[in-house]
């Protein structure tokens, strides 16, 4: 082994990293070569110096910095800390705000249904007068002219002497233009006063017998409005009981309970007679209750106000041969006339 080959293995010899053969060859060369032994001593001294080098130490906080980078605080935690720190100040304020909102929400939830129920209870008296006012001009049957209503007027005057709230009823029934203060008054004001005033004894009982003729005018529009609202019959009764000053309204039940006059109308042209009857109903204040086919004939039930009953039957008689049965001696406020039209 040459000196160069031996010197290349001197470091490995120092580190005991040579296999047995190499080590034996190197040691054999070193035994006879003082230069290579000096080289070996120099290398051993150098590694000795290197062994004296102090170990470097990582700076303080190195572990924490590594851990922060390895598992950084999630953004929501950082946001939470920013929002809630210091806890001693922010947390009580935010908790208090949440409690206030919760209480407010519960209060609103509890009070809102009560307000809605209260609005429902007030709806009938508040809506009746405007409904009457609104539906009167749009009703298919116009308000009867004074000359046609003379008989009704007489009856009304007779009845108004018996009824207590005469002025109010007069105000409502006469189609005269409202005065200035009436126009200014809110529609529900009068009803509100009626609710607070004690009802007269006669108002609690159904005023079927004492109903004025004008009641039929009111009944159609008001009842239609009530039906449209889907009001229960008990509600309507309650409303009437609570508001005795309001004009008596004729309910569907009352209409059905009116005396029935049967009429047999024999005509040459049934369809034409039906059209004429329809025209007649439209011209007058009468109201068609029902119409049905019945073995070659048609039966039309009509509710005719007292004031127009005579004129109605007179016109009806012109359409053909009319025979009336069950005519009452005293004409009720509303006559239910069942006309059977046949050829």
């Amino acid at each position: 082994m040459t000196c160069d080959e031996t010197r290349d293995l001197l470091s490995a010899l120092l580190d005991e990293a040579l296999d047995t053969g190499e080590r034996a060859a190197v040691e054999a060369h070193l035994a006879g070569c003082p230069d290579c032994r000096r080289e070996l001593d120099g290398l051993r001294a150098t590694t000795g110096l290197l062994a004296r080098v102090e170990r470097a130490r990582a700076p303080v906080g190195f572990v924490d910095r590594v851990m922060t980078r390895v598992a950084p605080v999630p953004w929501y935690r950082r946001l939470g800390r920013a929002l809630f720190f210091p806890l001693s100040i922010k947390l009580p304020i935010e908790a208090g705000a949440m409690v206030v909102f919760a209480v407010l929400g519960v209060y609103l939830l509890q009070t809102t249904p009560e307000l809605r129920d209260a609005a429902r209870r007030e709806a009938p008296p508040a809506s009746s007068p405007p409904a009457t006012e609104r539906s009167t001009p749009s009703a298919p049957i116009p308000v009867p002219p004074p000359e046609r209503d003379q008989e009704a007027e007489r009856k009304r005057e007779f009845l108004s002497r018996e009824a207590e709230p005469k002025p109010k009823r007069e105000d409502r029934q006469t189609p005269r233009p409202p005065s200035e203060d009436q126009t200014k008054r809110a529609p529900g004001d009068e009803e509100q006063k009626s609710v607070t005033s004690p009802p007269p004894p006669s108002a609690q009982e159904a005023p079927k017998a004492e109903a004025p003729a004008a009641r039929s005018q009111m009944s159609r529009s008001t009842e239609a409005h009530e039906n449209a609202l889907g009001m229960a019959d008990t509600d309507r009764k309650g409303a009437r009981g609570a508001a005795p000053a309001a004009p008596p309204m004729l309910s569907a039940k009352q209409q059905m309970a009116a005396p029935v006059v049967s009429g047999a109308l024999t005509v040459t042209d049934r369809q034409r007679a039906e059209q004429s009857l329809t025209e007649l109903i439209r011209k007058t204040s009468a109201r068609e209750v029902s119409r049905r086919e019945e073995s070659g004939a048609v039966v039309v039930e009509v509710a005719v106000p007292q004031a127009e009953y005579a004129a109605f039957t007179r016109e009806l008689a012109t359409l053909g041969s009319l025979r009336l049965e069950g005519q009452p001696t005293e004409i009720p406020p509303l006559v239910r006339l069942s006309v059977r039209i046949s050829e």
Binding site: R55, A56, R57, F62, V63, V66, R69
Partner: peptide, 26 residues
Amino acid sequence: QHRVFGVALRMLGNAAEAEEIAQEAF
């Protein structure tokens, strides 16, 4: 930490750079 940082420091010769590399190593 000291071993890793020590190698970086001896290799790079700059403490700040050595810490950066040591952190990156971990």
